[in-house]
Amino acid sequence: MFKRSDQDSRRSVHIVVDGAAVEAREGDTVSAALLASGRDVRRATAVSGAPRLPYCMMGVCFDCLVTIDGVGNRQGCLVPIAEGMQVEIQKGKREIGR
């Protein structure tokens, strides 16, 4: 869906998505890193379980909700990645206690 411009010379950063290592670039948000990864990163909505991907990328639509380092319902488009960050694709509602 997206590719990286050849102008991009930022340092590589590795995050973990559902247990698998994913390479991203320093300064990417979680959502940008997921969309650039080429993996199936569709979440499932809380109401009907419909598959979704980020829509606005600027903190308005909440379609980028994702579990980051064990905390659910984070807006992936507003959170910059960090080395070793644990990301889980959220299926349905946020679970109690995370």
């Binding site: 869906m1 997206f2 590719k3 990286r4 411009s5 102008q7 991009d8 670039r25 300064g27 990417d28 948000t29 940008a32 969309l35 650039a36 990328m57 600027m58 488009c77």
Partner: peptide
């Protein structure tokens, strides 16, 4: 947003 902040373009 993705283009400016991450240099990502549709392919």
């Amino acid at each position: 947003t993705m283009l400016k902040s991450s240099g990502l373009v549709p392919d």
